[in-house]
Computed example of a mutant assay.
Amino acid sequence: MNPVFDLTIFPAAEGDCLLLSWGGDRDTLHYALIDGGRTGTWKHLKPALGLIASNGRPLELLVLSHIDADHIDGLNRMLDDGSPIAPKRVWFNGFDQLRRLDPPTGFSPSGFAGADRYSMSLADAGWPINADFRGLPVMLETFPERFEIEGLSLKLLSPDRRKLAALKAGWDKWRNGQDDAGTGLAPSGQEPGGFAPAGIRPMPEVLDVDRLCGPSPVDESAPNGSSIAMIAEFGGRRVLFGADAHPDLLEKALAAVAGDEGKVKLDLFKLAHHGSRANLTRAILESLDCSRFAISTNGSRFGHPDPEAIARILKFGGERDGGKTLYFNYASARTRPWNDEGLRQRWNFDCRYPENDEEPLVVSI
């Protein structure tokens, strides 16, 4: 029997809520929770955590990748409601952790109020924050080459000190009353990354992959740049959790992981920033040997996934002769058009969806 290595992608509106499970068999699983989605995600997550607790299995790790509302709201609800299980360790770059950085520069507003509330709730719950790093931020400068948890190997790709310093500057400014942000929204109704959507962009009438796959502006949002992104490996299989990480840092980190091999072999890539065109570059895709890609969003806020990102996957991701698989946790107006039979045959890929939008999508890595 092959070891179990599964990813459960919960319905999390436009956000992320991911449960990683691994072990020698179904009776000896370990679990890691990455992000909590929006507040409404808790109704899906709570019974899953309750089942883990009733089976006497541990939640080894809880990660809040960054402080945007579509990642943190569900975790605040988890603490407010009383989680049925306590994590052994929590990784979170809150204000107390960022205070231990060098004096920063730069600014971008974010969900500071929610993040401060999360820090206070964690303290009340007595859950250890970044104990693996002596209370310092989770960043490339403090993370070991590999981190092992019950046979699971973790390799950090983001953030670095520079990305966290940009977030710290904005948080300082908000706390000092110099800015009224803190809701998790970028200024002036803009999408994180600095792009004003002026409503959700309509899907192209024709999904022309060759035309759509060209370059576009990249994400510069400080909250997204602070994302904890990493590769998790178990039983010889690998998954990359992109969070909302900036493409420049992902490109650099993946090049270092690839080394002389040229490409990083992955069994699944959970795309950064819900399939935003601003966070997935040709360079990232061409640094990977990967044919399976997962996207978490219902497209309700910013119209993710962007058609440009999907087009780049089809054009530059993996080897087309081997076929690709796109995993969507919602069958939405942004994802259903990609299930067109002509497109799938032309670009040699398949689409997978949950049975309905109230069910999680489970992917065997």
Rank of each mutant, 00 (worst) to 15 (best):
D124S: 12
G170T: 05
G114V: 07
M139H: 13
I129S: 07
S153C: 12
K155S: 00
T183L: 09
L152H: 04
F143V: 04
M120F: 13
T183C: 00
A125T: 01
K168Y: 13
A181M: 11
G182K: 05
K163W: 09
D124I: 05
R117F: 04
R146I: 08
F95D: 13
K168T: 00
G135R: 09
G170R: 03
K173Y: 11
G106T: 01
D179H: 15
Y118Q: 02
S110V: 02
D179A: 15
D96F: 00
P109V: 01
P144A: 00
E148L: 00
D180K: 01
F107A: 04
L140T: 07
R100C: 05
R134L: 04
L122N: 02
R100W: 04
L140E: 03
F107C: 07
S121G: 08
A166K: 13
T183H: 03
G170K: 08
A181L: 11
W174G: 10
L154V: 09
Q178V: 03
E150S: 15
G111K: 02
D160L: 05
P104W: 09
P109G: 04
W127E: 09
R100G: 12
L98E: 09
D102G: 09
D124H: 03
D124E: 15
N93P: 15
P159L: 07
R146K: 10
F133I: 12
L156V: 08
P109E: 02
T142L: 02
E150I: 03
L154H: 01
L101M: 10
L157T: 08
L140V: 03
T142A: 05
L136Y: 06
W171L: 09
D102F: 10
T105M: 03
P104F: 10
S110C: 06
G182D: 10
E150C: 07
D116C: 01
D102T: 13
F147Q: 07
K155I: 00
L98H: 04
T183K: 01
E148R: 00
A166Y: 15
M120P: 06
Y118S: 03
N130D: 11
G106E: 07
L122G: 03
S121V: 02
N130L: 04
G126D: 02
Q97G: 00
S153M: 10
D96V: 06
P109D: 05
D179M: 13
F133K: 11
R117E: 14
R117P: 12
A123I: 03
D172M: 03
G170E: 13
A123K: 08
L152I: 00
N93F: 15
L157D: 12
P144T: 01
D179W: 15
L164W: 01
F107Q: 08
F147C: 12
K163V: 10
K168P: 07
A113V: 11
F147A: 09
G114Q: 08
M139L: 12
G114W: 05
P144G: 01
I129P: 06
